[in-house]
């Protein structure tokens, strides 16, 4: 198992390298640079600045220097937040995004699995159809439509929740962003759980469990839930990626100073190092989380584990 994990980690390195190279090329290919502005600089000054930030070097050299810094754990200075290194910025913003993402994921799993299970148990009834209809809308309506509607209803009309990211609101300011982020995932997970649960409930060992007089709740909880979760677990990989990318939009809409917001700002500001740093970070994060998912798979399905 250890060997397997190690091999997976090593195998991720070429992927990461490719991602970094592509991101580097793309961000430099975009017109403009980090120091462009309407208040254009006089030629001398501009030259000095380029030299000071080493943007006058040929691209391959810049890339090589970036990589050598990366290996040492140095993601470089930010071109836009000039007093901070990229690592510091990511370190400051990430916990917030992590909180947001983790809560959204947790909410999505809990609500999604419950909804899917209920729908599966009540297959064919109105309840089943209603749950599935809701999930369909959750998937179809984009985040940037849902978010303002939620804000309008819950914040402006009902005044139950704060409209934006205010520092005095405490935990309640997380509610709308987390819900917005979780909504499409709830929908996917509900559908996935339902299909998987229906499949599992049709299996022979469920019939055995029922024949043992265990009652529906026990049958679901003890026997059906774990295997039904396997497809959901496999989905976690893409789901995490979706939450990570979705959080970018949600943070922008709600004005949350998380990593997603920094990402957008960095791209618009042509802050090369910050963009690359966040890309690397996200890529590594997704690889790591996928690895954890694989390990969890083994925890649920003993046949995989005992290979």
């Amino acid at each position: 198992m250890l060997r397997y994990t190690l091999l997976r980690v090593l195998g991720a390195i070429p992927t990461l390298l490719l991602v970094i190279a592509l991101a580097f090329l793309m961000v430099h290919a975009a017109p403009g640079g980090p120091f462009d502005d309407e208040r254009a600089l006089p030629a001398d000054v501009a030259a000095n600045i380029e030299r000071a930030y080493r943007l006058d070097e040929p691209l391959p050299r810049q890339f090589a220097r970036y990589l050598s810094g990366l290996v040492r754990g140095d993601l470089g200075p930010s071109y836009r937040y000039r007093d901070y290194t990229v690592s510091e910025l990511i370190g400051a913003a990430f916990p917030l995004s992590l909180q947001l993402g983790a809560m959204a994921m947790a909410l999505a799993i809990v609500v999604g699995v419950c909804a899917g299970t209920v729908a599966a148990l009540q297959q064919g009834t109105y309840l089943d159809r209603t749950v599935m209809a809701f999930s369909m809308t959750g998937i179809s309506i984009p985040v940037f439509v849902v978010a303002p509607v939620l804000v309008l209803f819950f914040a402006v009309k009902l005044h139950w929740l704060p409209a934006g990211w205010s520092s005095s609101a405490g935990a309640s300011r997380m509610v709308l962003p987390v819900i917005t982020l979780a909504l499409p995932q709830i929908a996917y997970i509900a559908r996935l759980t339902r299909a998987s649960m229906i499949d599992v409930l049709g299996r022979d060992f469920i019939r055995t469990a029922r024949a043992q007089g265990l009652g529906t709740l026990t049958v679901v909880r003890l026997h059906a839930l774990k295997p039904a979760m396997l497809p959901v677990l496999s989905y976690m990989g893409p789901a995490i990626a979706a939450i990570v990318t979705g959080s970018v939009v949600v943070e922008e809409i709600f004005g949350i100073p998380g990593l997603g917001q920094f990402f957008i700002r960095a791209a618009l500001n042509r802050d090369y190092t910050l963009v690359l740093g966040i890309v690397v970070f996200y890529a590594a994060l997704i690889v790591l989380l996928n690895l954890i998912v694989d390990v969890l798979y083994g925890a649920i399905d003993p046949r995989v584990r005992y290979r």
Binding site: V45, N48, I49, A52
Partner: peptide, 8 residues
């Protein structure tokens, strides 16, 4: 020049 100040 080494500073790279914008308002140099």
């Amino acid at each position: 020049p080494a500073t790279g100040a914008f308002y140099a």
